[in-house]
């Protein structure tokens, strides 16, 4: 067990290192002269002399390895440099934006989990009957509707037509509901299929016949026998979906005027603000690595077969 965890941690560290290399390389290999960009940003005329001075200042002439080490050291300490566009410290914006995106992801993940379990069970309880068809139809619709369209529909329905919920801003639970729902639609749809298909496959395994022979009813078998069997599967899929939510956040945050990481990243991409892109990318990649680590550990806890392989 300990052995597995330490091995898995080492694996995560290697991945983190690779992620940092990717982020670094991406910006270093960007076309155009960064020094010119910064010089112009500072409002100065980009004379060759001044550009040279800026290049010297930000260490452009140092060997790549040195630049990587400097950059990584800063990044680890939470210093992501200065935004090329606004001239402000990138890290100053990050904390608050991470909180906003965190709120979005946690709430949506919870909603998606609840909805998908409900829909999946509904389908598995009455397979190929009306509830299953409805659940399946909803899943197909949810997985096929573009997130930005879902968001637009939510705003149109809940804010414009019925004026129940605010359509923009990040101020209090009432303003969180629409973005949460918007982000939750896709993962809820995908996960409900995972639950439904997983339960059906579990229900055809031989131990279900044993459970039936014990005199257990269908509900008891679904919850006691099949559910524990699909838990590892579900956790894995949920992890993937939580990772994907970072991408959805990029679409949804600007739509609802939330100043989160997704919005920041998108602005960075739009204005080719490399430092912002780099910082957000590094945070996203770190997030995937951490989520994957947590998923693996959780699967370890829920699946005794794997637990034994590693102990």
């Amino acid at each position: 067990m300990i052995h597995f965890i330490s091995k898995r941690l080492k694996h995560s560290l290697v991945l983190l290192f690779m992620a940092s290399l990717v982020c670094f390389t991406l910006v270093v290999s960007a076309p155009g002269n960064v020094a010119v960009l910064i010089a112009e940003l500072r409002g100065a005329v980009a004379t060759p002399g001044y550009v040279e001075q800026v290049a010297e200042e930000i260490g452009l002439h140092k060997p790549l390895l040195m630049r990587y080490v400097d950059w990584l050291g800063d990044a680890v300490r939470g210093d992501f440099g200065i935004s090329y566009r606004t001239g402000t410290d990138v890290s100053a914006d990050l904390a608050n934006r991470m909180f906003v995106t965190g709120t979005l992801i946690v709430g949506s993940a919870a909603i998606a989990t609840l909805i998908s379990l409900a829909l999946g069970f509904l389908g598995a309880f009455w397979p190929y009957k009306l509830p299953d068809r409805v659940s399946r139809g909803l899943a197909l619709l949810g997985a096929s509707t573009p997130t930005f369209f879902v968001g637009a529909l939510m705003i149109y329905g809940f804010s414009v037509t019925f004026q129940l919920l605010p359509s923009f801003g990040f101020n209090g639970p009432k303003s969180w509901i629409l973005p949460w729902l918007t982000v939750a639609v896709l993962p809820a749809a995908v996960l409900s299929r995972v639950v439904r298909v997983g339960l059906e496959e579990a229900m055809t395994s031989p131990f279900v016949l044993t459970a039936k022979s014990k005199g257990l009813g269908r509900t008891a078998i679904l919850f006691r026998e099949a559910l524990p069997n699909i838990t590892p599967l579900f956790i894995n899929a949920l992890g993937t979906q939580v990772g994907l939510m970072t991408a959805t956040a990029i679409i949804v945050e600007p739509l609802f005027a939330w100043q989160g990481l997704g919005d920041y990243f998108l602005a960075g991409v739009r204005f080719r603000d490399f430092m912002v892109v780099q910082a957000c990318l590094l945070i996203f990649l770190t997030f995937f690595i951490v989520v994957n680590l947590i998923v693996d550990l959780a699967v370890l806890l829920t699946d005794p077969r794997i637990r034994r392989q590693w102990s």
């Binding site: 395994s205 031989p206 131990f207 016949l209 044993t210 459970a211 039936k212 022979s213 014990k214 005199g215 257990l216 006691r224 026998e225 524990p228 069997n229 838990t231 829920t302 699946d303 005794p304 077969r305």
Partner: peptide, 21 residues
């Protein structure tokens, strides 16, 4: 009646038990 009046034993004990319980 199942389990209460009639008990069952299966051919393959390797798959007859739930692996995660």
């Amino acid at each position: 009646l199942r389990g209460k009046s009639v008990g069952f034993i299966f051919q393959d004990p390797m798959s007859a038990l739930n692996p995660v319980r």
